[in-house]
Simulated scan of single mutants.
Amino acid sequence: MTGTPTLLLTRPAEASERFAAQLRGVLGARTPKVLIAPLMRLDYAGRLPEMTRVAGLIFTSANGVRAYAVAGGPRDLPAWAVGDATAEAARRAGIPARAAGGDARALLDLMVRERPPGPLLHVRGEHARGDVARKLRVAGLDTRETVLYRQILLPLGDAARAALEGRAPVVVPLFSPRTAVQFATQHGGRAPLLVAAMSEAVAREVAHLPAVRLLTAERPDAPAMLRAVVALLDHAARLEGPETDG
């Protein structure tokens, strides 16, 4: 049989540690070995535009909230957030925020329906999907955007490579298409691979890998990813490993 599965977390360290803590809250003593090997680090180097006339904020990730806080943005503006985790990050930073339901489409629908007065400011990273500001402008909402952080890709570390070259199953949750591409280009080895993808867009980037199982989360949020990872860990525990020589 295979050895104990390894959970390989590739998000930036803080996000990976938070996800690992959430998993421990679900699995307790059954939590497997967790290996944190970020494929991306964040550089909070952006500067805010003139904020005097800004009437509301848009956050499509918790990273955007942190970047906004680091940049010293005012906290008394109303905010709209893509999902519960992002909204909670905003509230912890002292910014009143509403959650839209988990994806960019839901966020756009909510804002177009409510039509808050502008100007609105979308706080985002250098690499972002959804084209939120432009779509809101097309819908008639005065919306600008500002890039407050960079997502810098990193190589797989030695420990991660060793796990992927071993015999025990490796469960890998992937949260963004860009990270999925980075993982796919560096993956190698013989370990049974089980991948949890946060969305269909993420799953497409790793569909060619020789995974034992590729599972897409029911929703693009942390609770759904936790459920997907638990399901994959259960599946990994039942796998038979490759035969040994001799």
Results as ranks from 00 to 15, higher is better:
residue 171 V to H: 10
residue 175 F to S: 10
residue 206 V to G: 02
residue 149 Y to W: 01
residue 187 H to G: 06
residue 120 L to K: 01
residue 124 R to S: 01
residue 179 T to V: 10
residue 153 L to P: 15
residue 135 K to Q: 15
residue 220 P to E: 02
residue 165 E to H: 14
residue 223 P to W: 06
residue 220 P to K: 07
residue 151 Q to N: 09
residue 165 E to N: 15
residue 185 T to S: 14
residue 191 A to T: 05
residue 169 P to T: 07
residue 128 A to F: 06
residue 197 A to W: 05
residue 205 E to D: 08
residue 191 A to L: 06
residue 214 L to D: 08
residue 112 V to P: 00
residue 156 L to S: 09
residue 155 P to L: 11
residue 118 G to S: 07
residue 180 A to K: 02
residue 163 A to P: 00
residue 154 L to R: 09
residue 203 A to V: 04
residue 191 A to M: 09
residue 182 Q to K: 11
residue 197 A to F: 06
residue 172 V to E: 00
residue 161 R to M: 13
residue 127 H to S: 11
residue 118 G to I: 10
residue 223 P to S: 12
residue 171 V to G: 12
residue 175 F to I: 00
residue 220 P to Y: 01
residue 221 D to W: 12
residue 151 Q to Y: 04
residue 219 R to C: 03
residue 139 A to G: 08
residue 203 A to D: 01
residue 176 S to F: 02
residue 123 V to N: 12
residue 174 L to T: 07
residue 150 R to V: 06
residue 163 A to W: 03
residue 175 F to K: 01
residue 123 V to F: 06
residue 218 E to P: 01
residue 207 A to H: 01
residue 121 L to H: 08
residue 209 L to C: 06
residue 127 H to C: 00
residue 206 V to R: 01
residue 148 L to P: 09
residue 222 A to N: 04
residue 166 G to K: 08
residue 207 A to L: 09
residue 187 H to I: 07
residue 154 L to V: 04
residue 129 R to P: 00
residue 202 V to S: 10
residue 163 A to C: 04
residue 136 L to K: 05
residue 183 F to S: 05
residue 173 P to W: 05
residue 131 D to I: 05
residue 199 S to T: 14
residue 140 G to V: 03
residue 112 V to C: 05
residue 222 A to H: 06
residue 118 G to F: 10
residue 222 A to V: 15
residue 178 R to M: 09
residue 162 A to Y: 02
residue 154 L to W: 03
residue 216 T to G: 06
residue 115 R to Y: 02
residue 111 M to I: 11
residue 135 K to R: 15
residue 171 V to S: 12
residue 218 E to L: 10
residue 187 H to M: 04
residue 132 V to Q: 03
residue 128 A to Y: 05
residue 159 A to R: 01
residue 149 Y to Q: 00
residue 130 G to W: 08
residue 185 T to K: 15
residue 130 G to M: 12
residue 215 L to R: 14
residue 151 Q to A: 15
residue 148 L to W: 11
